Amino acid sequence: MHITRNRPDTLRGPAENFTGTVWLDEIAAPDAPSRLRMFTVHFAPGARTAWHRHPHGQVLHVTEGEGLVQREGGPVEPIRAGDTVWIEPGESHWHGAGPRTFMTHLAVVEAAADGTTTEWGDLVDTHDCAAA
């Protein structure tokens, strides 16, 4: 058993991967052989990820506020506190806060054998979000 009492500093989401103000807190990244990675992600109103995918999928659990999620080719879906979203391995998607409220979610992924967790794509077009 290992209890983590000192967490890494909160990091701002980099502009090449996020639109708007996003803050990331690493919750868990155990040593190998575990490949689990867990973060709390805080989105300001209107903030969102770029399009991206995960080699082993992703679980999002919304803890506060209201947000949006979309998989490539699908409709923009509302999500709110208490909702859990499973994103399939390799499925291109984005997620973030709705236009009026902050949104916080837990994000859980499993790293690939080379340690990567995310393949980033283009930023989401603002017009597409506004249409939602």
Rank of each mutant, 00 (worst) to 15 (best):
M1P: 08
H2P: 06
I3E: 15
T4H: 10
T4D: 14
N6Q: 12
R7K: 07
P8L: 07
L11E: 15
R12S: 13
P14W: 11
A15M: 04
N17S: 05
F18I: 01
F18Q: 02
T19F: 02
T19E: 03
G20D: 05
W23T: 14
D25T: 08
D25P: 01
A28S: 15
P30Q: 11
D31I: 12
A32M: 06
P33N: 07
P33I: 07
S34F: 07
L36Y: 09
R37E: 12
R37H: 09
M38L: 12
F39S: 11
H42F: 09
A44D: 14
W51S: 04
H52P: 08
H54V: 01
H54Y: 04
H56Q: 12
H56F: 07
G57E: 00
H61Q: 11
V62A: 15
T63Q: 14
T63N: 09
G67K: 00
L68P: 01
E72V: 05
E72K: 10
G73Y: 03
G73W: 02
P75V: 12
A81R: 06
W86A: 13
W86Q: 14
E88N: 10
H93I: 05
H95R: 01
G98E: 00
F102C: 08
F102E: 15
M103K: 02
A107W: 00
E110L: 10
A113P: 05
T117Q: 01
T118G: 05
E119N: 00
E119H: 03
W120K: 00
D122C: 04
L123R: 10
D128T: 10
A131T: 13
A131K: 13
